[in-house]
Amino acid sequence: MNSPALEQAAGLYNYWIVIVLMMTGFYIVLARRNLIKAVIGLNIFQTSVFLLYVTMGKVRGGTAPIIPPEVAEAQAKAMHETGHSEHGTHALGTVSEEIVGAHAAHADLPGADIIYSNPLPSVLMLTAIVVGIATTALALALVVRIREDYGTIEEDRILEIDRADGLPDDDDEDQWIDADTHSLAGSSPDTPTDSESVN
Protein backbone atom coordinates (compact mmCIF):
# COMPACT_ATOMS: atom_id res chain seq x y z
CA MET A 1 0.00 0.00 0.00
CA ASN A 2 1.39 3.34 -0.96
CA SER A 3 1.62 5.97 1.60
CA PRO A 4 -0.49 8.80 0.07
CA ALA A 5 -3.51 6.54 0.04
CA LEU A 6 -2.86 5.56 3.60
CA GLU A 7 -2.39 9.14 4.58
CA GLN A 8 -5.61 10.07 2.91
CA ALA A 9 -7.43 7.30 4.69
CA ALA A 10 -6.01 8.49 7.96
CA GLY A 11 -7.08 12.03 7.23
CA LEU A 12 -10.54 11.23 6.03
CA TYR A 13 -11.71 8.20 7.98
CA ASN A 14 -13.66 10.43 10.34
CA TYR A 15 -15.72 11.73 7.49
CA TRP A 16 -16.25 8.26 6.16
CA ILE A 17 -17.62 7.03 9.40
CA VAL A 18 -19.95 10.01 9.56
CA ILE A 19 -21.08 9.20 6.05
CA VAL A 20 -21.80 5.62 7.02
CA LEU A 21 -23.85 6.91 9.95
CA MET A 22 -25.75 9.32 7.73
CA MET A 23 -26.52 6.61 5.25
CA THR A 24 -27.80 4.30 7.97
CA GLY A 25 -30.25 6.99 8.97
CA PHE A 26 -31.17 7.62 5.36
CA TYR A 27 -31.74 3.91 4.87
CA ILE A 28 -34.09 3.76 7.83
CA VAL A 29 -36.16 6.58 6.34
CA LEU A 30 -36.33 4.99 2.93
CA ALA A 31 -36.93 1.41 3.96
CA ARG A 32 -39.39 2.06 6.76
CA ARG A 33 -43.01 1.16 6.58
CA ASN A 34 -43.77 2.51 10.02
CA LEU A 35 -44.30 6.22 10.44
CA ILE A 36 -42.49 6.55 13.74
CA LYS A 37 -39.59 4.60 12.37
CA ALA A 38 -39.40 7.15 9.60
CA VAL A 39 -39.12 9.94 12.13
CA ILE A 40 -36.44 8.01 14.00
CA GLY A 41 -34.50 7.54 10.77
CA LEU A 42 -34.78 11.19 9.97
CA ASN A 43 -33.43 12.01 13.41
CA ILE A 44 -30.41 9.81 12.95
CA PHE A 45 -29.82 11.17 9.48
CA GLN A 46 -29.89 14.73 10.71
CA THR A 47 -27.81 14.08 13.81
CA SER A 48 -25.14 12.57 11.60
CA VAL A 49 -25.14 15.66 9.43
CA PHE A 50 -24.52 17.69 12.58
CA LEU A 51 -21.51 15.48 13.17
CA LEU A 52 -20.29 16.16 9.65
CA TYR A 53 -20.33 19.89 10.29
CA VAL A 54 -18.75 19.68 13.69
CA THR A 55 -16.00 17.46 12.33
CA MET A 56 -15.17 20.18 9.85
CA GLY A 57 -14.65 22.72 12.59
CA LYS A 58 -12.05 20.73 14.46
CA VAL A 59 -8.44 21.85 14.33
CA ARG A 60 -5.73 19.44 15.34
CA GLY A 61 -4.37 20.48 18.69
CA GLY A 62 -7.11 23.05 19.01
CA THR A 63 -9.43 23.73 21.86
CA ALA A 64 -13.04 24.73 22.19
CA PRO A 65 -13.57 28.32 21.11
CA ILE A 66 -14.02 29.60 24.59
CA ILE A 67 -11.56 32.28 25.49
CA PRO A 68 -10.07 31.99 28.93
CA PRO A 69 -11.23 34.98 31.03
CA GLU A 70 -7.73 36.30 31.68
CA VAL A 71 -6.94 36.33 27.98
CA ALA A 72 -10.16 38.09 27.21
CA GLU A 73 -9.51 40.67 29.83
CA ALA A 74 -6.01 41.37 28.60
CA GLN A 75 -7.24 41.64 25.12
CA ALA A 76 -10.00 44.01 26.03
CA LYS A 77 -7.51 46.19 27.80
CA ALA A 78 -5.11 46.15 24.87
CA MET A 79 -7.89 47.09 22.57
CA HIS A 80 -8.86 49.95 24.77
CA GLU A 81 -5.31 51.21 24.67
CA THR A 82 -4.93 51.07 20.92
CA GLY A 83 -8.20 52.97 20.99
CA HIS A 84 -9.51 51.51 17.90
CA SER A 85 -13.18 51.65 17.40
CA GLU A 86 -15.38 48.94 16.07
CA HIS A 87 -15.19 48.34 12.40
CA GLY A 88 -18.57 48.58 10.93
CA THR A 89 -19.36 47.46 7.51
CA HIS A 90 -16.71 47.01 4.96
CA ALA A 91 -16.78 45.76 1.46
CA LEU A 92 -17.30 42.13 0.80
CA GLY A 93 -14.29 39.90 0.88
CA THR A 94 -11.77 42.59 1.67
CA VAL A 95 -10.24 42.91 5.02
CA SER A 96 -9.34 46.40 5.99
CA GLU A 97 -5.84 47.26 6.98
CA GLU A 98 -7.06 48.34 10.31
CA ILE A 99 -8.22 44.92 11.36
CA VAL A 100 -5.09 43.24 10.20
CA GLY A 101 -3.15 45.80 12.11
CA ALA A 102 -5.19 45.25 15.21
CA HIS A 103 -4.78 41.54 14.79
CA ALA A 104 -1.02 41.91 14.63
CA ALA A 105 -1.13 44.08 17.70
CA HIS A 106 -2.77 41.27 19.63
CA ALA A 107 -0.19 38.76 18.61
CA ASP A 108 2.05 39.31 21.57
CA LEU A 109 -0.74 39.29 24.12
CA PRO A 110 -1.14 36.36 26.47
CA GLY A 111 -3.16 33.56 25.06
CA ALA A 112 -2.42 34.44 21.49
CA ASP A 113 -0.80 31.06 21.01
CA ILE A 114 -3.94 29.14 21.84
CA ILE A 115 -5.41 27.40 18.81
CA TYR A 116 -9.16 27.48 18.77
CA SER A 117 -11.34 25.16 16.77
CA ASN A 118 -13.63 26.88 14.32
CA PRO A 119 -16.71 28.13 16.11
CA LEU A 120 -18.85 28.70 13.04
CA PRO A 121 -19.94 25.07 12.42
CA SER A 122 -21.02 24.92 16.06
CA VAL A 123 -23.09 28.02 15.60
CA LEU A 124 -24.73 26.63 12.51
CA MET A 125 -25.43 23.32 14.14
CA LEU A 126 -27.07 24.90 17.14
CA THR A 127 -29.57 26.34 14.72
CA ALA A 128 -29.88 23.08 12.82
CA ILE A 129 -30.53 21.07 15.98
CA VAL A 130 -33.42 23.31 16.85
CA VAL A 131 -34.78 23.04 13.34
CA GLY A 132 -34.46 19.27 13.63
CA ILE A 133 -36.40 19.03 16.84
CA ALA A 134 -39.09 21.29 15.43
CA THR A 135 -39.45 18.98 12.46
CA THR A 136 -39.59 15.97 14.75
CA ALA A 137 -42.28 17.54 16.88
CA LEU A 138 -44.37 18.39 13.87
CA ALA A 139 -43.91 14.94 12.39
CA LEU A 140 -44.93 13.27 15.63
CA ALA A 141 -48.02 15.45 15.87
CA LEU A 142 -48.95 14.31 12.39
CA VAL A 143 -48.34 10.71 13.38
CA VAL A 144 -50.70 11.07 16.31
CA ARG A 145 -53.28 12.56 14.03
CA ILE A 146 -52.91 9.83 11.44
CA ARG A 147 -53.16 7.21 14.12
CA GLU A 148 -56.43 8.75 15.30
CA ASP A 149 -57.86 8.77 11.82
CA TYR A 150 -56.65 5.43 10.57
CA GLY A 151 -56.07 3.43 13.71
CA THR A 152 -52.59 2.40 12.63
CA ILE A 153 -49.21 3.86 11.88
CA GLU A 154 -48.09 1.20 9.45
CA GLU A 155 -47.95 2.69 6.00
CA ASP A 156 -48.88 -0.54 4.23
CA ARG A 157 -51.92 -0.87 6.42
CA ILE A 158 -52.95 2.75 5.84
CA LEU A 159 -52.72 2.33 2.10
CA GLU A 160 -54.81 -0.83 2.40
CA ILE A 161 -57.46 1.07 4.31
CA ASP A 162 -57.46 3.78 1.70
CA ARG A 163 -57.82 1.23 -1.02
CA ALA A 164 -60.59 -0.52 0.86
CA ASP A 165 -62.39 2.81 0.91
CA GLY A 166 -62.78 2.42 -2.81
CA LEU A 167 -61.44 4.71 -5.40
CA PRO A 168 -59.44 7.59 -4.08
CA ASP A 169 -61.78 10.27 -2.78
CA ASP A 170 -64.90 8.21 -3.13
CA ASP A 171 -65.67 7.93 0.49
CA ASP A 172 -64.12 11.21 1.35
CA GLU A 173 -66.67 13.11 -0.60
CA ASP A 174 -69.31 12.02 1.87
CA GLN A 175 -67.30 13.46 4.67
CA TRP A 176 -66.82 16.56 2.73
CA ILE A 177 -70.49 17.14 2.33
CA ASP A 178 -71.08 16.39 5.98
CA ALA A 179 -68.46 18.86 6.98
CA ASP A 180 -69.91 21.30 4.54
CA THR A 181 -73.25 21.39 6.25
CA HIS A 182 -71.59 21.22 9.65
CA SER A 183 -73.97 18.51 10.59
CA LEU A 184 -73.23 17.12 13.96
CA ALA A 185 -75.39 14.13 13.32
CA GLY A 186 -72.79 11.52 13.89
CA SER A 187 -70.56 13.24 16.36
CA SER A 188 -72.26 12.41 19.59
CA PRO A 189 -70.16 12.92 22.71
CA ASP A 190 -68.60 9.52 22.29
CA THR A 191 -66.34 10.44 19.44
CA PRO A 192 -63.15 9.34 21.06
CA THR A 193 -60.57 7.95 18.80
CA ASP A 194 -59.31 4.49 18.48
CA SER A 195 -56.39 5.09 20.74
CA GLU A 196 -58.56 4.47 23.72
CA SER A 197 -59.90 1.21 22.57
CA VAL A 198 -56.45 0.00 21.69
CA ASN A 199 -54.99 0.82 25.03
Partner: peptide
Protein backbone atom coordinates in the same frame (compact mmCIF):
# COMPACT_ATOMS: atom_id res chain seq x y z
CA UNK B 1 -60.14 14.36 4.64
CA UNK B 2 -57.98 12.12 6.73
CA UNK B 3 -55.70 11.80 3.79
CA UNK B 4 -54.55 15.34 4.42
CA UNK B 5 -52.41 14.63 7.50
CA UNK B 6 -51.02 11.62 5.71
CA UNK B 7 -50.14 13.69 2.65
CA UNK B 8 -48.56 16.26 4.93
CA UNK B 9 -46.54 13.58 6.67
Amino acid sequence: TRRAPLAAF
